[in-house]
Computed example of a mutant assay.
Amino acid sequence: MAATFSLFFCSDPRHAHLYTQPLRNPVLNPFRAFSTTSLPPKPAHPLLLVHEFDNLKFSPVYSSPHSSSSEPYLNDPQRTGGFLCSEESKKLQILQNFRYSHEVVSGSLFVRVMEAEEINATVGLLSESFAESMFVPFGYVRFLAFLVNQYLIERRDLIPHMATLIGFYRGEDGEEELAGTVEVSFNNQGANASPPTPTPPKDSPYICNMSVKKQLRRRGIGWHLLKACEELISQMSCTSRDVYLHCRMIDTAPLKLYTKAGYSPVKTDSIFFLLIFQPRKHLMCKRLSILKDHSEVDIANPDEEFPS
């Protein structure tokens, strides 16, 4: 994981890299990230519902990363007209036009904002990553997919105050595939209602739910998803230049990566979290430089990638 899941999907680049947080905090409690009206009645144990999703299929169908959006945000009547002020419309335009690309090991990575028709593919990637990081049986991925799908739909309504980015990897054979995803919120309007502890400031940019496809790890993809978030935050002219993310203390590789990227722990969970069988987490912060040119963003490619 690369950023703590906020379903609670957090910052943990080692696993499927959901770790730089989360789907409103699924890591601690997959239900508290959602409103009670968006979920069916909660059973005695959430995983008892798994059998109800046996027929759930993933359809990782996504458009070419180089194609134009078939459903651009600015043409969505729910996001325009009287609903958006001029500043929000400007930010929607930035999100629609955002592109980040860089060479990685044995190929290249292309990052942009997730489109509506790509939710299914993103759900599949996040669900498998979350299941791996939590050591739950693979059979429960279907249920996790239900939760993640609800979360992504709910969060997408908060654009342009947050965005879900997806990265496409193109190998030396020219084939393209969905390689990773990460979520970033820009202000308190896009912040998670139930963020993981230690709680980050809601008015500051926050990175979470980073995930890299298992077969494509150790190629620098997680690093560049992080850098893409930082570049987008700079373009969105956030009021705060302090960017936050979470990293579990047990995840030494992600911690090393975040430290190398310039993030430092500012708060840490109490040791009493161990009494409730929850891994302690660092809240990490980095102050972004004021860039005159977006090309100045540090995109150095580290040798290490989130390990398996």
Rank of each mutant, 00 (worst) to 15 (best):
L152D: 01
I153C: 01
R155E: 02
R155H: 04
R156S: 08
D157E: 13
D157G: 02
L158D: 12
L158P: 08
I159R: 09
L165M: 14
I166C: 12
F168Y: 15
Y169Q: 02
Y169C: 00
E172Q: 10
D173R: 03
D173T: 10
D173Q: 10
D173H: 03
E176R: 06
E176V: 08
E176Q: 14
E177A: 10
E177W: 04
L178M: 15
A179E: 04
A179L: 09
G180I: 07
T181W: 09
V182R: 15
E183S: 05
S185A: 06
S185G: 05
F186C: 04
Q189Y: 13
G190D: 00
G190F: 09
A191R: 13
A191W: 02
N192M: 12
N192E: 11
N192L: 13
A193E: 10
A193N: 14
A193D: 13
A193G: 09
A193F: 13
S194N: 15
P195A: 10
P196Y: 00
P196A: 14
T197R: 12
T197Y: 11
T197C: 06
T197I: 06
T197V: 12
T199F: 05
P200N: 04
P200M: 05
K202D: 02
K202N: 12
D203Y: 13
D203M: 06
S204R: 07
Y206T: 01
C208T: 09
C208M: 10
C208Y: 01
N209F: 01
M210I: 08
S211N: 06
K213F: 01
K213H: 10
K213E: 05
K214H: 09
Q215R: 11
L216N: 08
R218A: 09
R218C: 13
R219D: 07
R219N: 03
G220H: 01
I221E: 04
I221Q: 08
I221C: 01
G222E: 13
W223T: 07
L225E: 01
L225F: 12
L226P: 05
L226G: 08
A228F: 11
A228M: 11
